[in-house]
Design a protein around this nucleic acid. Structure first.
Lengths: 147, 147
DNA sequence: ATAATAATGCAACTTAGTTGCATTTGTCAA
DNA sequence: TTGACAAATGCAACTAAGTTGCATTATTAT
């Protein structure tokens, strides 16, 4: 699935009654260029590097608005920190380094097909309607293996 | 993999210099009889039903001791609550109801083999040493589908 | 029975995220 | 271009889950 350009995302936010502020545009830009999931504090730091010092309340409210518009989704990786990534991105899974906490995206096309089959079986056998799944691999990244 | 009986778990804790208190024994018993992962507050509630009112600090310290002994492991399911389950239990995955938050265990033997293969490929292609993975399915349980 | 040390409770603290409210700012209509 | 209105923002205070320091209590080896 392709990622929509910035102006499409802005249009979808404006159609929900949202205004385009420089903070909001900057956050959208961060998600479009980010290759990995971002936390609220990641975003706050990047904004501050760009010259805006933004209150954390604003960050959380932005994330909530952008998420309600379906542009990003919330994901969590075994710690107490919420992270967000583009919802429309290709479906993929994550490698989470238990040492440096770095996250890599990893597409698993063939496995994905198996997981879809599995979801069908689960709905029949367990009477459980699966909406989505999460698959993460925890371990040591290339760098941390050498430490 | 079979679950060790209570006296084996107690022995392994005692060998680490721990004493057997009624709170500790009761927590071990809860994990042995629980079919699903337990949170700190689940355990505190069950203890209080058993007539012990135990401070939350104690609960967290017990969980930490029992975890350090390798008896339980910590797992998280997309919210900010830590949960614990027996480490020695058969490997399985979870169905998490996004409505009532109920958790079901689900063994996926065939898929497990595929995941092991995948971990081998990841270690070669991504130079990432996988220690463990987590796979959860989110959706609506039998009861919540009818609401 | 006693000494050593593990277990416990309590209050205070941390972290990530949330809420209420007053103020500022973007946008649309005139 | 200018107002007016609603959206966006900042701040302080709050919540929830978990952690820490310290004084007290209880278990266990001797």
């Amino acid at each position: 699935m392709d990622i929509k350009p910035l102006y499409m995302l802005e249009k979808s936010l404006q159609s929900r009654g949202h205004r385009m502020t420089k903070v909001r545009t900057s956050i959208l830009g961060q998600f479009l260029s980010a290759k990995i999931p971002l936390s609220a504090s990641d975003i706050q730091m990047k904004l501050s590097q760009d010259g805006f010092s933004t209150n954390k309340t604003t960050i959380y409210r932005e994330l909530s608005a952008i998420r309600n518009a379906g542009i990003i989704k919330k994901i969590m990786f075994g710690d107490r920190n919420e992270r967000y990534e583009l919802a429309e991105d290709d479906h993929h899974h994550h490698l989470v380094c238990v040492s440096c906490k770095k996250i890599e995206n990893i597409p698993l096309m063939k496995l994905e097909k198996r997981l879809d089959d599995e979801e069908f079986l689960i709905s029949k056998k367990n009477h459980f309607k699966v909406m989505h799944h999460s698959l993460e691999f925890f371990g040591y990244c290339h760098t941390c293996q050498k430490l």
